[in-house]
Design a protein around this nucleic acid. Structure first.
Length: 674
DNA sequence: GAGCACTGC
């Protein structure tokens, strides 16, 4: 873990600290233990600051739920939560982290034989189910933050419902925000005619509510709607600054562009404040910033200065900042939507849900009473959805379906989802998995190919290309490229918006074959003991994100281990493979290997520099971060396609020969030609 | 021609 991350962690611990005996949950200890003893499923409705995440596992531990040698699992949607909460609980129990209390996240397993309470990400518990489908090592599984409806927590809850049928002794605790409790209750209620001991919903599960312990937050609405919420929000910030007592301001907008706009507007307006007036310091906050740039929001402002943090949704749950007294909520958020017809992702600006609005307002009341100004009317608030649209209904489902099949779910269409994904998403995903050879014509997972693809922590197309790498003699190269792809474009980072400098840095690694090999070069240079030396300084000089590069190193190591376990090594190259690839340059073999995974995402550049997808008529544009934004090329395969402001961008492009497409995917292209 | 909301294995 980097120093910065640790600082973020302690930040969170400080935030969470309340003497356990004074927490609102303390008097509920016995009722809670009774509920969990009595009912297989307990829904906990607990507001922020109730102490549910830190205290319930301790109640269970002290209540004897681990005496038979089993463990208590507590899942979190985010890594930072798993690590910081486990540190808190270890301290309260007076043990060393990794002993009785531990955590497990990708790349880091801080648990031991002695561990009784284990915090882990929900995605990792899903992975554990591959080797332990009935979760036999756990007596209780607590799924925290289930109301966020993340892809993996949704799937986890469905699987837990199944596991309960085989394991009546298992206890499931679901922690949720107020508005969705009934939904979870209904979901876990045994269906009529099933074998859950003919119990009714009433004696099968229960809801326990815990009060929050945050300070009161006064909510203010607009009296009439605005058509420019960013401008209105800036007006409000200035109004707060000029008329309200001390306390920093947190303003929620949807993305980087709005953040820049808001900060420019504020800069213009504070020029009018006069030199003697109290200062207002606008600070941006979004995930794309480097860790250093993000740290500014945690630093105490200068004397006589009020911070105005202009943030994306990252400040809603992922990052907690001390000293916020005022929240301005524009009422919008950018959400991903997957278009199964065009097979592309869109980022849509949509109104937030009531749950989101409540969470945002709560950010003003963490340390003292606060105020929240909503840039919409009360009527508009009443019309908001209760909860955020579940991720499973707006994602590319190919990775999820592959994983479910590998867990032995034969018929994904009949799987018991909390909310069913639209059938078009399921069909599209199955089509893709079929064309990649992960699923056969009968809709069954293929072995070993499909199962191996499912085991790799990569999207199916990339997994397929990586598994083909030995036959091209480029396993080492493809491991690096796959690891770099998981960074999703975060390898390069501009210093203070200096894009020219970034482009110069990128060009130092660039090769004509395209973005994949360029990123390979970046990794090679970073890890070369004579060049990058894996050092933060070298990254800074080359506009690279140090933390992201370290992640690539970890991912590559993990992928290498997975392939080793599967018995896949470079020397598994057969003699016919060797003949086929003999005499080819390494780069060409890499290009061909990528084609075997990404053949379905091929496009050809037209004379005007735009692209047209194979078998389609959508006009595509190389993303400005691609080498082919400026350079000419003929055919390419691309890693990602995304619509933004009405234009469709493709990212991470590699040039290929048209013949390779039909050579490596004859079935796919035969069908398309008809 | 000009740009990734946020997570996670």
């Amino acid at each position: 873990m980097s120093e910065e991350e640790e600082e973020l962690g302690t930040e969170l611990i400080a935030e969470l600290y309340k003497p356990p005996a004074l927490l609102p949950i303390a008097p509920l200890k016995d009722p809670l233990l009774y509920a969990i003893e009595t009912f297989p499923v307990t829904i906990i409705v607990g507001e922020t600051g109730s102490g549910k995440t830190t205290q319930i596992p301790q109640f269970l531990y002290k209540g004897g739920w681990t005496n038979d040698g089993s463990q208590i699992a507590v899942t979190q949607p985010r890594r930072i939560a798993a690590t910081s909460v486990s540190a808190r609980v270890a301290e309260e129990l007076g043990c060393q982290l990794g002993q009785e209390v531990g955590y497990s996240i990708q790349f880091e397993d801080v648990t031991s034989e002695k561990t009784k309470i284990k915090f882990l990400t929900d995605g990792l518990l899903l992975r554990e189910m591959l080797v332990d489908p009935l979760l036999k090592r756990y007596s209780v599984v607590m799924v925290d933050e289930a109301h966020e409806r993340s892809l993996s927590s949704d799937i986890l809850l469905s699987l837990l419902k199944k596991v309960l049928r085989a394991r009546p002794d298992l206890r499931v605790v679901v922690s949720s925000a107020t508005l969705d409790a009934e939904k979870f209750l209904d979901f876990f209620a045994p269906d009529d005619g099933q074998t859950v001991h003919s119990k009714t919903k009433v004696d099968y599960e229960t809801i326990v509510s815990i009060e929050g312990r945050t300070h009161p937050v006064d909510i203010f609405y607009l009296s009439s709607p605005t058509n420019n919420y960013v401008e209105k929000a800036v007006d409000t910030a200035l109004l707060i600054h000029n008329s309200e007592p001390d306390g920093d301001i947190l303003l929620f907008v949807t993305g980087r562009e709005e953040i820049d706009d808001a900060i420019d507007m504020v800069a213009d307006r504070i020029a009018d404040l006069g030199p003697s007036a109290k200062k207002l310091q606008p600070l941006p906050l979004y995930a794309g910033l480097s860790t250093e740039q993000q740290m500014y929001v945690f630093q105490k402002a200068d004397q006589n200065t009020r911070k105005l943090i202009v943030s994306t949704n990252i400040a809603e749950a992922s990052i907690t900042i001390d000293g916020i007294t005022y929240v301005i909520d524009t009422g919008y958020v950018k959400l991903r939507a997957y278009d199964p017809v065009l097979g592309l992702e869109r980022l849509n600006i949509v109104p937030v849900s009531k749950a989101s609005a409540t969470q945002r307002a709560g950010r003003a009341g963490r340390t003292r009473p606060g105020k929240c100004f909503r840039m919409y009317t009360e009527v508009a608030y009443d019309a908001l959805d209760d909860a955020t649209f579940p991720e499973i209904q707006r994602s590319n489902l190919a990775p999820v379906i592959l994983q479910l099949m590998n867990l032995g779910i034969q018929n994904v269409v009949r799987f018991d989802f909390l909310d069913n994904p639209p059938s078009a998403l399921v069909v599209r995903a199955l089509d893709l998995l079929f064309s990649l050879g992960a699923v056969d014509a009968y809709g069954r997972l293929t072995k070993p190919l499909g199962a191996r693809m499912a085991e790799l922590p990569l999207e199916p197309m990339l997994a397929r290309a990586l598994l083909n790498a030995p036959s091209f003699g480029v396993l080492s190269e493809m491991l690096t490229i796959a690891a770099m792809m998981t960074l999703q474009g975060t390898a390069f980072v501009a210093h203070d918006g200096n894009n020219k400098q970034l482009e110069r840095a990128r060009s130092r690694f660039a090769v004509k074959e395209g973005d994949h090999v360029t990123l390979y070069n970046v990794y090679q240079a970073f890890t070369n003991p004579a060049v990058g030396k894996q050092s933060p300084q070298w990254c800074r000089e080359n506009c690279l994100n140090y933390k992201a590069m370290l992640k690539a190193v970890s991912v590559r190591k993990q992928l290498r281990n997975s392939l080793d376990r599967m018995g896949i090594q470079e020397n598994t190259l057969t003699s016919s493979d060797a003949i086929r690839v003999g005499g080819m340059e390494v780069t060409e073999r890499v290009q061909r290997c990528l084609t075997t995974g990404f053949f379905a995402q091929a496009a050809r550049m037209k004379s005007d520099g735009s692209f047209v997808a194979v078998g389609g008529d959508t006009v595509l544009w190389a993303h400005p971060s691609s080498l082919f934004f400026h350079r000419k090329v003929d055919w390419v395969v691309y890693h990602e396609i995304q619509e933004s402001k009405g234009k469709v961008y493709i990212r991470d492009l590699t040039s290929v020969e048209m013949e390779w497409l039909t050579e490596y995917a004859p079935e796919y292209y035969k069908v398309k030609q008809r």
